[in-house]
């Protein structure tokens, strides 16, 4: 299997029989999924089906919610990420995240991007300047902000802020970027810019995106996973496959019914 760029879709993240509980409530049931490297994997499904919960398992963001329990295994490059020896800060450096609403820090554009590298011990000014420029270039924001790096990031437009947040993730050189509804607060043009950026980033990064927008999943991703809520309200994986197959000839009746709008 290859992605748009012709790269091999080898497993980067491997989830095996993963169950997630919030207290007594089972949020995810028996999820087994192989996320390919240097490709975009989209997770779609109705509200409450556990898409975001699954995404947040991949960099252990659920750890911060009390009463969370995870069984099964999630491996990153063959290494279990739920082992005691795993340093969560280090994990989140490797697995960056972009959220629904752009959330720049209330500081300058430059400091937003330099924040991560500084946290990880980089203080050499020349090195930081280089990181900031590279990250902003990769996020296709450089030309728009290069003359106002000292201005507050909050003055940028929504679409620019979201690209800034992507640049901020890129600055710590992650391997994987998780995106939770990254375009839901953006206008259509800003959305297309982010999608274009994602396709560029997929050459070097593994991207997992949760989206309510099926057309976005169809446009941007290589692989699509369809999640659904079972009768006991726990989320499960119904179908996982190449995006072109999922949106033209899904195998499971439930996927077909969901993407053609016959249930929701």
């Amino acid at each position: 299997m290859t992605n748009y760029n012709g790269a091999c879709l080898c497993g980067k993240i491997s989830a095996r029989e993963v169950n997630l509980y919030y207290g007594n409530f089972q949020a995810l049931k028996n999820i087994t999924l192989e996320v390919p490297q240097c490709a975009i994997t989209a997770i779609i499904g109705p509200s409450g089906c556990g898409k975001s919960s699954f995404l947040r398992l991949l960099n252990r963001m659920n750890d911060i919610i009390n009463g969370t329990r995870v069984t099964g295994d999630i491996k990153l490059d063959g290494q279990s990420i739920y082992e005691k020896s795993v340093d969560v800060v280090d994990l989140r450096k490797r697995v960056g995240m972009v959220f629904q609403k752009p959330n720049p820090f209330s500081m300058s554009i430059y400091d937003n991007i330099a924040f991560g590298p500084r946290q990880h011990g980089k203080h050499n000014k020349r090195e930081l300047i280089e990181i900031v420029e590279n990250s902003l270039r990769q996020a296709v924001l450089w030309d728009e902000v290069k003359d106002k790096l000292e201005q507050s990031a909050l003055a940028l437009s929504g679409g620019q802020q979201q690209r800034l947040c992507i640049a901020r993730v890129l600055a710590v050189e992650p391997e994987i970027i998780l995106m939770d509804e990254p375009c839901s607060a953006l206008d259509p043009i800003a959305t297309l810019k982010i999608e274009d950026l994602m396709r560029n980033l997929a050459k070097d990064y593994t991207i997992v995106i949760v989206t309510h927008n099926m057309q976005q999943a169809a446009r941007v991703s290589d692989m699509t996973a369809f999640f659904m809520m079972e009768e006991d309200r726990s989320g499960s994986l119904v179908e996982f496959g190449a995006t072109t197959h999922i949106f033209t000839t899904p195998k499971d009746r439930r996927t077909e019914d969901y993407i053609t709008g016959r249930f929701g």
């Binding site: 949106f247 033209t248 899904p250 077909e256 993407i259 053609t260």
Partner: peptide
Amino acid sequence: QQPMASDLR
């Protein structure tokens, strides 16, 4: 309408 799957076919 951006039809999908069997609708698109």
